[in-house]
Simulated assay, not measured.
Amino acid sequence: MDFKSETTQTTTDDIDELFSWSEGWDFEYTQLTAGRLGFRERVVQLPGVAIKWHTATQAMLVRETFLRGLGFGFVRDAVGPTRWRGQEIDVHDGLLYQSGNEQHYALGRSTSSMSIELDDRLVQALGWNLDCVAPLQRFDPAAIKDLELICADVKRMTEQDALASSYTQAARADSLYLLSRRDAVLRRLRKVLQPWFACQGHVHDSVERATPGFLLVSQAVAYTLRRDDSSIPSNVELASLLRVSERTLFRAFQGWVGMSPQAFFELRRLHRFRQFLFAAPRLKGAITKAAMQSGITHMGRLSERYRKQFGESPSEALKRRLKT
């Protein structure tokens, strides 16, 4: 375990750069609303613990898997609803991340959230075995307030340490000093997680908590990924395949991603184009090639649609990426 304390801050407007600097996660993000992403992350690193604050301007669809350790996150504020596997959640609901468990949620615009991550060794040392516990639970507002306050204090003290004299920094780097900060956070976190600990021993299948609309959209997306070509299936084709009416299909997509099936798959195609574009080694011919790879046949409005969604043209985006 690394006995150090530090703060870092990262900002990006690029959905494909999101959390590329973080280890221990497998993820996929889709920017649902148009404009610059406006993402900001501030992290305080303690021995075995990372405290993170996030803000983002645009709405996002998120698929995440925490690969090691244990994590806890909650939304502090947002414009529009936040949904987990189709269920609408509020500021008194928290999500538990455990190694290998995949989570799906949709964030509204102007979301502010907070999370705490514990590494494997610390989780084992604490004996916090929460396997099979339902990931989503409602927590005590007073307990989360105490957790937020102690985390804010730790952030302030860590930032002050960075500005202190070298003698003071050396004294505060003492392991007991850092562990006392960390343990203060863990005590508050343990109180917040009481609803999860109370559920220990009750086997839970998160599919049971997913809404029918979420499951329907997931099946539709899985079908498009299995297709041999990159064309977008019609609503009639999808509804027939999934054995539902077109109206039910439309309502499922509207409820989960806030748009029609066709609009959502067009948006996914635009993200796919962006990924192919950023993989190009040079500017010449890259836009046309990326469009062909992603199944975009009408080039006329591509630049306009791309700029509206991501706040820059394809050529501007690639030039920026090639410079970095």
Rank of each mutant, 00 (worst) to 15 (best):
D119N: 14
R226Q: 15
S206I: 10
D93G: 00
F250P: 00
V192L: 09
R274K: 15
T33Y: 06
F310W: 08
V257E: 12
R188E: 15
T33F: 05
M299W: 03
A286E: 06
R187N: 08
T297R: 12
R156T: 15
V91S: 11
Q160L: 15
E17T: 08
E312I: 09
R227T: 11
F265Q: 01
A263C: 02
L136E: 14
K284T: 15
A173L: 14
L241K: 09
A142I: 10
L193Y: 03
G311L: 10
Y306M: 12
L242H: 03
A280M: 11
D93Q: 11
A263V: 04
D140Y: 04
R321S: 06
Q293N: 05
K308C: 07
L163F: 03
S230P: 00
F3I: 14
V49Y: 07
A290G: 13
K308V: 10
L147D: 04
R243Y: 00
A162N: 04
P233Q: 01
F278Y: 13
V79Y: 05
L322Q: 13
W53V: 13
F72Q: 08
D161T: 10
G295R: 02
R227V: 09
R42M: 05
T30F: 05
R36K: 15
V79W: 02
D77V: 07
D13L: 02
F19I: 02
D119K: 08
Q194I: 04
G94C: 02
K52E: 14
W84K: 01
D120R: 09
L238K: 01
R172N: 08
S165H: 02
I296L: 13
Y29A: 07
T168F: 10
K284P: 04
G311T: 12
A280V: 01
F278N: 13
G48H: 06
G100I: 10
F265S: 04
G100Y: 11
A263M: 05
D174W: 01
F74H: 15
S115N: 04
E159C: 13
V133L: 07
L242W: 00
Q9D: 08
W196Q: 06
L46S: 02
A184V: 03
M114H: 13
G94E: 07
S180F: 02
P212W: 08
W21K: 12
L176M: 07
A56H: 15
G285S: 07
